[in-house]
Design a protein around this nucleic acid. Structure first.
Length: 122
DNA sequence: AAGATGACTAACT
DNA sequence: AAGTTAGCCATCT
């Protein structure tokens, strides 16, 4: 058919699929920053695109959007905003710790998620 | 069409 | 430590 140029779910935002894939792969209890997601998705230097992709993600994907924070380990929504509170609550429910509104990105990296699974929290 | 914006970041003051 | 600048580029006015 001349029709099947794209799948039912795509609405022209196909350029974000790789980003969504990466985010979907972040294990519970760990976080990545925008720049890191961009790099893993094959778009080094395009951190802003990740924020864009998150905002435009189809609901059908149900991405763990809360596992993406900024390079300082902080939530990139205005402090005290409903979105920020929700994100923090979701992360803390997974065992991510905040110290002074900041997450230790080294400690809660996906790389260390494996360690946590084998050894438990330090 | 051109300028402003933004779920960003690294480098520099 | 906190503010500014420059780079980034898809969207929105």
């Amino acid at each position: 058919m001349a029709g099947d140029l794209e799948t039912t779910d795509s609405g022209g935002e196909d350029r974000y699929v790789k980003v969504w894939d990466v985010i979907e792969g972040i294990p519970a209890g760990s976080v990545l920053n925008y720049g890191e997601v961009a790099r893993l998705a094959g778009f080094p230097g395009r951190a802003r695109m990740v924020g864009m992709a998150l905002g435009r993600a189809p609901k059908s994907r149900q991405l763990p959007w809360h596992r993406v924070v900024n390079a300082q380990g902080k939530i990139s929504f205005p402090e005290g905003s409903p979105k920020a509170k929700t994100q923090r609550r979701l992360l803390e429910a997974e065992g991510v710790e905040f110290v002074d509104d900041t997450i230790d990105l080294e400690r809660f990296s996906p790389q260390r998620a494996m360690d946590r699974e084998l050894w438990g929290p330090p």
